[in-house]
Every structure is written in structure tokens, then in C-alpha cells.
Design a binder for these strands. Structure first.
Lengths: 149, 149
DNA sequence: CTGTAATAGTTGGATTTGTAACTAACAAGC
DNA sequence: GCTTGTTAGTTACAAATCCAACTATTACAG
């Protein structure tokens, strides 16, 4: 690519960011208006809904979120009675998090919304395209490290 | 998809966000450490570098950034002498923004970095895949409106 | 003209995030 | 036992973002 050929529309991080922003906007409005949640809180909720009992660190690893974000999200989710914490008997630093009945209900509701939302997004792509997209996104998610220079 | 089939790894907004975060991390560190810039500032700089003289509103439309973000980014870029502002003669509400020599130099430098960075990202994909990805991302960027429910 | 609406851009205050320092609990060496 | 290091999670302060209100200017209807 020649020096003056550079276009923002070909710069992957930019494209990805635009697509991520645009495609999460509506869903964001739903969990925000319906449950007053932030993105971090929604993510914690979903991880607990999907994988059951987890510790904060485990969520951090899976979601690649910093522990302070998780700590605050869990704090708010606990306040609002979506999540409960139980100390581990063996290692008393560790807390096991799980959804309350109310948290489970919120998760069930939002998961259904997410599924429909996702289906609608997928419908704008043709199936082959969607498969390639997913593969590419998973690859790119793992590029992070390993200096390119 | 059955109710209990939902996986975060198939939820497009989540996937996109993970890929966007991961793939912009290293580049972010470069413009941050080298020029003390934020993402918003980098974007304004790139828009001016690519399209020449623009107004704040024009940048806002192209980049889909809120005007307060742009206002603050321009403020900081002006402080650091990367950007100059000139009032429009006809409509004195409007300011035309352009790069100073210093701004141009920073842009040239970062554009070169971005190109190499982008090339490295692209190399993790095969060409057909990259083309499909780009198309899909552009589509998804335009989904925003038009209720899915 | 004059009053009302629209547009370009800025500012203030609350909310959220990032970074680094912190407490508490465990682990391992001696 | 005691010291040193590590890990889980929290907190404090600074930095960045969001939202709503603001100034200044232009447009336009009557």
C-alpha cells in the first residue's frame, strides 16, 4: 500500500470499533433502561448466567476485564440483589458469585433479547459471510500480544 | 437457536467489542506514549490528515463522535500546536480546522505506524477472509437504527 | 425589523474508567 | 515460628466521558 493510500475505512481497529459501537447501541439501551445496568454489569450477569457460579477472577479472565471493573460491577449487582457472594471455605480470599432468583430472571430476559437482537444482526449478513466474520473476529481477539514491529 | 444454546462467543456485539479492544491495544500504546494522545485526539488528527481542512461538525459526522468529544479533542490538539482553527468568513459560527506542520508530522508518523500495524493484523487473516470481514464490518456499522424488535 | 427556531461549538457537573496503592489471606523457605 | 512473595479483591484519586444546559451566530416567518 503506498503511503498516501491509507484510508481509515481500511484500518481494522477503526472499522472494528465502529461496528462494535453501532451494533451494540440498541442492546445497550435495553439493559440500561430496563435494569439500569452498565456494560460491565451486563457482562458479569451474562457470565454468571452462562457458566453458573464463578469467582471475580474467573470472570476477569474469561471476559478480559480488569479486576477493578469487575469489583465495581459486582458491588452494584449485589446492591441491587442480582448477585450473591459466598466466601470459599478453603481459601477465604475467594468469593463465589452467583445469581439470585432476581438476577436469573433479569438474565433470562436479557438473554432472550440478546438472541433476537443477534439474529437480527445476523440477518443483515449472509450465512457464509457470518461464519467467516466470526472466525476472523476470534482470531483478531487473540492477536493482542506478540509485538508486530 | 434453543433458549439454552446462547453463547457469548456467538453474540456479535460482544465478539466485535473483544476484537476491537484487542486489536487496538498496541496501536493505542504507541500514540499515547509517543504523543500523549487519546483515542479521540488520534481520530481527529487522522481525519484532518486524510481529508484536509474540516470543521468540527464534519469530523463528527464522519467519525460518529459526539460534538463534545470533538470539542475537547480539538482543544487539546490546539494547545499542543497540532491543529489550528480559522473562523469561516461567511458563517462566523464555523471553524475550519487544519494540521500545523507539527500536526502533519505526527500524522505522517502515526499513519506509517498504522499501516504497518494494519498489515500485521491482515496477515493473520487470509485475503478472502479479510475482504469478507471488511464488507461485513461496514454493513454492521450501518445497522444502528431501524428497530429489530 | 422582530421573534422563534436551528446550528456550531463550549462548558459544568455527575458518572465512569484507569492506575496505583492498599488490605487480607495464603504459600513457601528457612 | 517469621519473613518474603503471591493472589483475591477493594479503595482512592486522577482522568475521561456523558448529558444537559449554555453562548453566539445564522435562518426564516410574519
Amino acid at each position: 500500500m503506498a503511503d498516501d493510500d491509507f484510508q481509515l475505512q481500511y484500518f481494522l481497529p477503526y472499522l472494528l470499533n465502529q461496528a462494535a459501537e453501532a451494533s451494540s447501541l440498541e442492546f445497550q439501551q435495553i439493559y440500561k433502561s430496563r435494569y439500569g445496568m452498565l456494560r460491565t454489569e451486563w457482562r458479569v450477569l451474562f457470565h454468571l448466567g452462562l457458566y453458573g457460579q464463578l469467582t471475580a477472577s474467573e470472570i476477569g479472565q474469561r471476559a478480559r476485564m480488569h479486576k477493578t471493573k469487575i469489583s465495581r460491577a459486582v458491588h452494584r449487582l449485589t446492591e441491587r440483589r442480582f448477585v450473591t457472594r459466598t466466601r470459599d471455605d478453603g481459601d477465604r480470599r475467594v468469593e463465589h458469585l452467583s445469581l439470585t432468583r432476581q438476577g436469573q430472571a433479569a438474565y433470562d430476559d436479557l438473554r432472550a433479547v440478546a438472541q433476537r437482537y443477534n439474529a437480527a444482526l445476523m440477518d443483515t449478513l449472509d450465512p457464509a459471510e457470518a461464519a467467516v466474520l466470526r472466525r476472523a473476529l476470534l482470531k483478531l481477539s487473540d492477536v493482542a500480544q506478540g509485538g508486530f514491529t
